[in-house]
Simulated scan of single mutants.
Amino acid sequence: MKSLLNEIRGCTICKNHLPHGPNPVLSASIHSQIVIIGQAPGSVVHRTGIPWDDKSGDNLRSWLQMDKHTFYNPDVVALIPMGFCYPGKGKSGDLPPRTECAPQWHEPLLGQMKGVKLTLLIGQYAQAYYLGDQVRPTLTDTVKNYEQYLPAHFVLPHPSPRNNIWKARNPWFEQDVVPALRKSVAEII
Rank of each mutant, 00 (worst) to 15 (best):
M1P: 08
K2M: 01
K2Y: 00
S3H: 01
L4C: 02
L4K: 00
L5E: 05
N6G: 03
N6T: 07
I8P: 07
R9H: 08
I13T: 12
N16T: 15
H17N: 08
L18V: 03
P19F: 05
G21C: 03
P22Y: 13
P24C: 14
L26D: 08
A28D: 05
H31W: 09
H31F: 10
H31Y: 14
S32R: 04
V35K: 04
I37F: 12
G38S: 14
G38P: 08
A40K: 09
A40H: 13
G42Y: 01
V44C: 09
V44N: 05
H46D: 05
T48N: 05
D54I: 12
K55S: 13
K55H: 11
D58R: 01
D58T: 07
L60A: 07
R61N: 05
W63D: 12
L64T: 03
Q65P: 00
M66S: 13
H69P: 00
P74Q: 06
L79W: 02
L79V: 02
I80S: 06
F84S: 02
K89A: 14
K91Y: 01
D94S: 11
P97E: 07
P97N: 13
P97F: 13
P97V: 09
R98D: 10
C101K: 01
C101P: 01
E107R: 12
E107H: 06
L110V: 11
G111V: 04
Q112A: 02
M113E: 08
K114V: 01
V116Y: 04
T119V: 13
L121G: 07
L121E: 06
L121K: 06
L121D: 03
I122E: 10
G123K: 13
G123D: 09
Y125H: 15
A126W: 10
A126G: 09
Q127M: 15
A128Q: 12
L131S: 06
L131T: 06
R136L: 06
P137K: 13
P137L: 10
D141R: 11
D141T: 06
V143K: 11
N145M: 07
Y146T: 01
E147N: 06
E147D: 13
Y149I: 02
P151R: 12
A152E: 10
A152Q: 15
H153S: 05
H153R: 01
F154M: 04
F154N: 00
V155H: 00
V155Q: 00
P157D: 07
P161G: 05
R162T: 10
N163S: 03
I165P: 04
A168W: 02
Q175W: 02
V178H: 06
A180I: 01
A180T: 12
A186T: 00
E187P: 00
